[in-house]
Design a binder for these strands. Structure first.
Lengths: 235, 235
DNA sequence: GATCCAGTCAACGCCGACGTTGACGTTGAT
DNA sequence: ATCAACGTCAACGTCGGCGTTGACTGGATC
């Protein structure tokens, strides 16, 4: 008579400790299935039984690869922010770049990484990780802190662009940011990798709109009387 | 002995049938409380007990004003689309307007209505009503159909702008739309009525970026050579 | 061919949230 | 005073989904 209780938690821990290629690969598959569904239906609406079906497993088997539904989410979106912050820090440290160049770079890098890590980053955006709404967990707090850090770097790039005289100073940095990265982040609602456009093409197109506008020369002539929009009301 | 069972459903129906000013007002309060929380935490994460506390009521009392949690959501976002579609249809019917003017108008109207109906519209955006994710209910189908209708009208305005030679033809209409309305819709993450900027100011500023770009004249001159500096980071 | 282990599965306990119940004040009309 | 309607509330039934259990299978190792 053996009392070896199976205890899935312990078995998961030992399996993860072994770190075999097979286990890691299968785990990635499970995370991928979860990410797909989280993207499609949202985290809360997604049932673990659906994740299991998507991955071709039984629901209980999920727990052989992840301790909880939360863990799936955290592992999916975990590296997203770190990657972005690392890229921004590298740009900031490069003295040869202007603010505009840094802004352009991070913009393109973000979009291409959205594409590469699809759908992980879009899950991150969709689930509003930056909001308090998530939870009061330590993990959520960390995410929020890192998000604010990244945000501050973007604002700094923009301020640099304004101080250099490249970006319009009649628009507050925050509005510059929300316009530019609004276009970018909204891609989570419509962009699908493998479609007619690459992430890079989308990014460059949006960048050209942000910097130069969407009008033709003729259209610009038609629209000529364009007073500074904010000073009229704020001043 | 009377068998008058209280049956909250019937009592709600009779109360709603009477349509007294008090009832309507209180119901609006409940909807407002629900909208606030839906906006903050998302529909699924919001508990009816929280809605009740926000409205200063007992949870059961909610059912005197709404038959279900779903009904709260539907009534909150119900008019949003209809208003937008009506505005777009009016613009379309006005022969005196060019495509660019229609696009500009609907852009400003949408933003100001976001502000006026806050937070209802933002709930609509946040809950991704256009996605299949919601449900297979008849209501969801209708919402999706109406959304596609509105979307088609926006695309038509943009195509008109391109055909008139005002908007750049090297950018597909869909990208024009996603850039412009990406900026707009992303406001649901940061815009708060009563802040330093009105909805109209935000809309006009974004419009000026979309049409003319965010660069100064000097910045435009600097950007002309447009050195490809991406290799500094990626390579 | 016996033993062991990775991987899987049907089944259970549990909990939290929705929607309902039936009764309890309170108000205003008769 | 009586009655009806209004608005409210503590308490319950129910159900869906999470996380766990303990046993089963098929292949590898001795």
């Amino acid at each position: 008579m053996n009392d070896k209780s199976s205890n899935i938690s312990k078995r998961r821990r030992t399996a993860r400790a072994k770190d075999s290629a097979d286990y890691v690969a299968k785990r990635a598959e499970v995370l991928g299935a979860a990410a797909t569904l989280f993207k499609q239906q949202g985290f809360h609406s997604t049932r673990l039984v659906d994740v299991a079906r998507e991955a071709g497993l039984d629901r209980a088997t999920i727990y052989y690869y992840a301790g909880s539904k939360e863990e799936l989410l955290q592992d999916i979106v975990g590296g997203v922010l770190d990657t972005a912050i690392a890229a921004a820090e590298e740009l900031r440290a490069n003295d040869a770049l202007t603010g505009m160049q840094r802004l352009h770079q991070i913009f393109v890098i973000l979009m291409t990484s959205y594409e590469e890590n699809y759908p992980a980053t879009f899950v991150y955006i969709q689930e509003q990780m930056h909001q308090v709404g998530v939870q009061e967990t330590e993990w959520a707090q960390l995410i929020m802190k890192r998000t604010r850090l990244f945000d501050r770097m973007l604002i700094d790039f923009i301020k640099e662009g304004i101080e250099d005289g490249d970006l319009r100073s009649d628009i507050p940095p925050r509005l510059h940011e929300n316009a530019l990265f609004g276009m970018l982040n909204w891609t989570h609602r419509w962009f699908v990798p493998g479609g007619s456009l690459t992430g890079r093409q989308v990014a460059e197109t949006f960048w050209s709109i942000y910097t130069g506008g969407a009008l033709t020369d003729a259209g610009r002539a038609n629209a000529l009387p364009s007073p500074p929009v904010l000073s009229a009301v704020t001043g």
